Simulated assay, not measured.
Amino acid sequence: MSDFIVGLTGGVASGKSEITRRFAALGIAVADADLAARDAVAAGSTGLAEVVAAFGPDVLADDGELDRASMRRRVFADPDARTRLEAIVHPRVRAALQLACAAAPGPYVIAAIPLLAEGGGRDAYPWLDRILVIDVPQAVQHARLLARDGIDHDLADRMIGAQATRRQRLAIADDVIVNDGAIEALGAHVAALDRRYRSLAAQAPAT
């Protein structure tokens, strides 16, 4: 059971997945908010039932699952829709992550929370001991989104604009990795933070 929890966050296309993989390769458990969000609205769940009640049955795909691509376009075009969806999903994600972190083995655990700043920051996640922000310039995010998702410039701009700003994310950071260069540089950054977190975890009082 891990008593020291590090929240990892960053904007879309900042490289969060690559960095969490590197922590995992060092033997660190990762609780993933994206997976928790999928479970929160899985077919047959109370979360999906609330989404259907809020948005109508046309949010469902033919197989009864949430039509995620359609929902993504909808919430990025309509801030009110995004707020309604987040009110359904975020509380379930927070609860699932806290349980997963409490049960995780190892000296510390990473809670990967892309929407940490948007979801209330430290106030919403008071059980985080430290927050790591993966920071990139907006131009880099934009270029990566176009290359990764095959979307147009307008949707890329709206996806970035719908999230917290760099300043808002950095305001809640204890640690920062600037991921605007070669992927090979990430190993040294992650290794240094791993050493720091192991040391801090060893000094933290058990709960």
Rank of each mutant, 00 (worst) to 15 (best):
A54T: 15
A77L: 10
L85Y: 03
D34F: 00
R21G: 13
D63G: 07
R84N: 06
T83W: 08
G64H: 09
A24D: 06
G64Y: 10
V109W: 03
D62I: 15
D34P: 03
A42C: 12
A104Y: 04
V93E: 01
A111Y: 01
L85W: 02
R84F: 09
L60Y: 06
A111F: 02
E65W: 08
L115Y: 03
L26I: 02
A25H: 02
P114N: 08
P105C: 07
A31H: 02
L66W: 05
P57F: 13
A49G: 10
D67H: 10
P79N: 06
I110A: 00
P107M: 15
R94G: 08
A49T: 14
R84S: 12
A69N: 08
E86Q: 12
A96M: 11
Q98D: 12
F23R: 02
I110H: 00
A61W: 07
R74L: 15
A31K: 01
G56S: 07
D67S: 07
A33N: 01
G27E: 04
A81L: 09
R82W: 04
T83H: 14
A42I: 12
A111V: 04
A81G: 12
A95F: 11
P79C: 07
V109N: 04
C101F: 03
R92I: 10
A43V: 15
P114E: 06
R72V: 15
A25I: 01
R21Y: 09
A81I: 12
A37M: 05
D78Y: 06
A100M: 13
A69C: 07
E65P: 05
L85I: 05
A111P: 03
L66S: 05
A31R: 01
L85C: 04
R82M: 13
E50P: 12
L66N: 04
F76L: 12
A42M: 10
R73A: 15
V75Q: 03
D39E: 15
V30C: 01
A112I: 02
A69T: 14
A77F: 09
V89Q: 00
A111L: 05
A103E: 14
